[in-house]
Nucleic acid binder design. Structure first.
Ligand code: SF4
Ligand code: SF4
Lengths: 133, 133
DNA sequence: CAATCACAGACTTTATTTATCTATAATATA
DNA sequence: TATATTATAGATAAATAAAGTCTGTGATTG
């Protein structure tokens, strides 16, 4: 079990957009270079973020991506859910999974992780960034 | 990102071993039937649990698997780590991941889930089982 | 109109997971 | 001791998922 590289790309892109000057859209090419990933692939990932309402895109010259919400309203969980989906990490494969005890505990455990990620906003990260980089 | 089916099999097997009469080893055939999985495949999974020291195996007639520790000393996390490994769920693929802020937060989030799983013992589950099944 | 950009879908490649098959080693018991 | 029974190991195959490419289309700017 691993987070996908797509999630990694998405998180780093969001962090960059947050740290970057607001309002001016950033093209996928620039974003892709920083992460050593092909623009077309990154584009596919960012489209998911667009559909999730986290960023917005502008076609044409001087187009690109920019934040849609304020950075203090974007959580890690928002981004991760946009990429990985919201399904549970654990699926009881047996026939009566609706009341599966194991399943229940696994979901609770996952909930702990999600709670943390839900509370972790991009603004906080950007703050730390500024004092380091 | 999903937990593997192997983890599911391992957890259910452990739960069965805990709920079952202690001391008498249980063969992989019996364990496999309950979960609709091939004995050889399950065997491979259980061997990981053996190597992790959670259960022990006995060859030959009347052989099989039995718990090695007391059930109140076996946590969900023990089982999951035995199957999935202990590596972090998130790998920053960029060049300076040692001090990656994103990585740090992801590891913390994962730690929340692990804390829950570390505290969840098989004995507690077996308890609930008894009052249901 | 021409250049620039995002989007969509088909496709390929690579990696991982799941599962099978076969042969070997250990053990009980008849 | 011989035989049946059971776990283990390793090679391999099949299925699934993730990662990445390619190409064409549509929107926007200037
Ligand atoms: S934990 Fe109990 S209820 Fe859930 S699938 Fe396993 S046996 Fe069934
Ligand atoms: S979060 Fe900052 S330090 Fe970490 S990889 Fe991204 S840019 Fe580098």
């Amino acid at each position: 079990m691993k987070y996908s590289k797509a999630t990694n790309y998405a998180l780093h892109t969001m962090l960059f957009l947050v740290a970057h000057t607001p309002d001016k859209p950033v093209g996928v090419q620039q974003l892709a270079e920083r992460q050593n990933v092909s623009p077309t692939y990154l584009s596919k990932i960012l489209t998911k973020l667009v559909k999730a309402g986290l960023i917005e895109s502008a076609s044409g010259a001087n187009g690109g991506y920019r934040l849609r919400r304020k950075q203090e309203e974007i959580s890690f969980l928002d981004i991760i859910h946009a990429i990985e989906g919201t399904a549970s990490l654990f699926d009881c494969t047996l026939d009566h999974p609706s009341e599966c005890l194991i399943q229940q505990e696994m979901v609770k455990a996952e909930g702990q992780m999600e709670d943390y990620l839900r509370g972790k906003m991009m603004s906080e990260l950007a703050e730390k960034m500024r004092s380091w980089h």
